[in-house]
Write a protein that binds this DNA or RNA. Structure first.
Lengths: 190, 190
DNA sequence: GTTACCTTACCTAATTTTTGTTAGTTATTA
DNA sequence: TAATAACTAACAAAAATTAGGTAAGGTAAC
């Protein structure tokens, strides 16, 4: 395995753990264990320590989201398929918990880094989705609503589906996302 | 201050912190600091230590939710006001993050206690809301949907509103909850 | 009503455990 | 044989926990 491949592997594992459990819950030991190595060996791949590893992981994560969302949106032709594509994209990725990130995880990092991460998060994930809704609204496809609120609601719904323990249901996450999306578009009373 | 009053105060403070930041992020030092006492003094009020304090806090929390939801629902006459009352109830309480609780916080407690907490959570908060939707569905007020999924979606929407940093908006949480609820009921395309 | 003695609600200081980090060593491989 | 990618062991810092002390306030005995 090449150097950059094994570094990617470290970032992948760390990302999955940090995304699922949050910064404070995940110990370096957990990451090392998941990688099949000793805690100290992590410092070969991540010499900057835990906080810097978290930041690298999240920056790469946001980078990938920007790319993935852009492609997902570009390839869908109408706005409803765009929303579905975005939903499926998130379901294919490690869970992204904004609430925990903002209120909990980011308190562990230096304020300037936290601020920067919030900024790139906005550009990478919030903005692309806001733009879908803005285009919808301009075209008259959806009624007048607070776009930022709607974007937050949309994301929260997808992540709620994402976080349903697989053992609690016999449906696939995509099925559930479709149903939730349908409710969002046409309402409960339709 | 009476003995039970000051104990309640400890539980109140611990609840707010645990609910907002999660189990691992909150250190006993943080709780002590918020109470204006030394870390070691916490052991006078919570001799069982951190894990047991967390469990007591969450059990009391669920107890209160059961009560509060029951009253909120009983006092509203139609189902739409019931949903609004439930939303407002949650906004009046410390945030409840199921995803974090299940995937993260509960990993720190003994499995049997975790199981029990999941159970009382279901009875105290999931069930009352499911019952609203079931009655709606039976009465034909809403169309056929997966009730458990709908309940999760509803809760996730409310908590998303609850977690919006007040500085990011000039609207009240109740306003935002009303708008989100309206979208849920009538859809984006209405 | 003052002395003795409890209890309450903290405190400081020390200890233990967990977590993060550094140093120095070794096997593998390009 | 030099770089890579691990390892063990030690160390440091943070977090949880325990031990033991004390000041304030109540209560019973004298």
């Amino acid at each position: 395995m090449s150097s950059s491949e094994s570094r990617e592997r470290v970032l992948d594992v760390a990302e999955k753990l940090f995304s699922t459990y949050g910064y404070a819950t995940v110990k370096l030991k957990d990451i090392a264990k998941a990688l099949g190595m000793r805690q100290a060996s992590l410092y070969y791949h991540a010499p900057g320590g835990k906080e810097e590893l978290y930041l690298e992981v999240m920056r790469r994560n946001m980078q990938r989201h920007r790319q993935g969302l852009e492609e997902a949106i570009a390839q869908a032709d109408d706005w409803q398929s765009q929303l579905q594509a975005v939903a499926y994209w998130f379901l294919s990725q490690p869970p992204m918990d904004f609430t925990r990130m903002i209120h909990s995880d980011l308190r562990a990092v230096h304020p300037e880094h936290a601020q920067h991460l919030i900024h790139i998060t906005y550009e990478a994930v919030l903005q692309p989705i806001e733009q879908i809704f803005e285009r919808c609204q301009a075209a008259g496809d959806i009624r007048a609503v607070d776009i930022k609120l709607l974007t937050g609601a949309f994301l929260s719904l997808i992540q709620a589906v994402h976080s349903v323990p697989q053992q609690w249901t016999n449906r696939s996450k995509e099925e559930m996302a479709d149903e939730v999306l349908d409710i969002l578009l046409h309402g409960l009373t339709a």
